[in-house]
Design a protein around this nucleic acid. Structure first.
Lengths: 145, 145
DNA sequence: TGTGAAATGATGCCAAT
DNA sequence: ATTGGCATCATTTCACA
């Protein structure tokens, strides 16, 4: 991961379909050298995948919520992970510092299916209670991940 | 957005560098028909961009926080968007229901640069105060977006 | 790493549905 | 309005220096 790799990654983040030649022009390498580096970045797991960002509204997944999770007693992170993995509406989650034990980002087709998913979460073992914030309007969506 | 478009989007989500011919084989179209549809999906904004998912740890962006934003008086969503857009550490944000005005997901290189970004957020015009939850361990990372 | 050749894929046009 | 096939052009990919 040197400066050249970082440059290649920046280019691919902006346009994952950029040609090797174009990337090479930008970072100062030949097309084949860029290809070799990209292949290596993929093989080593630095580049997880090539994807697209789809408008969630069009995709029919326009309803979102941020949910704070409060657990009963001490719950191990891998236990939380097990619970959350079973709910497909959970797109992102992490244990956090502060009063809550975890923050969960949920995305669903509509309010109704979000409510059902929330109910599943709320009734899971060791979950004490939840505090939901329904997203009213999306402001930022920088998916560099 | 018919069934064919949905199939094309599914393929591109799995591999944004898939060839038009390969996509066509999967959904039952010729390469040129797939290209036309992809071009249209991009032009109409359904496909927002072609990107890569990078391992945040390797990328040196392993420190995250969820931040609740409380504003002074009524702040228009587009005003919040303007403020948040200026902070690159903000990867995701939305106005929400409940006591907070917005929830912001931030990602940074380390605690120190996260702190600096938080300070910039906290001192922005019309921001009353913030409530941060630093992510201790990432549980879920379903980045279909 | 770069160069150059061969294979592969992208792109635009046209006739047909 | 949208498709498949084809011709052309660009890019990827690989062997070798």
């Amino acid at each position: 991961m040197d400066k050249l790799d970082a440059g290649i990654i920046d280019m691919l983040r902006l346009n994952a379909r950029a040609g090797y030649g174009d990337i090479g022009d930008a970072v100062g390498l030949s097309a084949s050298a860029v290809k070799r580096r990209v292949d290596r970045l993929v093989a080593s797991g630095v580049i997880r995948s090539f994807t697209i960002q789809v408008d969630p509204a069009v995709d029919g997944m326009g309803t979102e919520a941020y949910v704070e999770l409060f657990c009963r007693g001490n719950v191990a992170p891998h236990e939380l992970k097990r619970i959350l993995s079973a709910i497909p509406e959970v797109v992102d989650a992490g244990t956090v510092s502060g009063s809550a034990d975890a923050v969960v980002h949920m995305r669903s087709r509509d309010i109704h299916s979000l409510e059902i998913a929330l109910e599943r979460l709320r009734t899971a073992t060791n979950i004490d209670n939840t505090r939901s914030s329904i997203v009213l309007s999306r402001l930022i969506h920088r998916r560099y991940e």
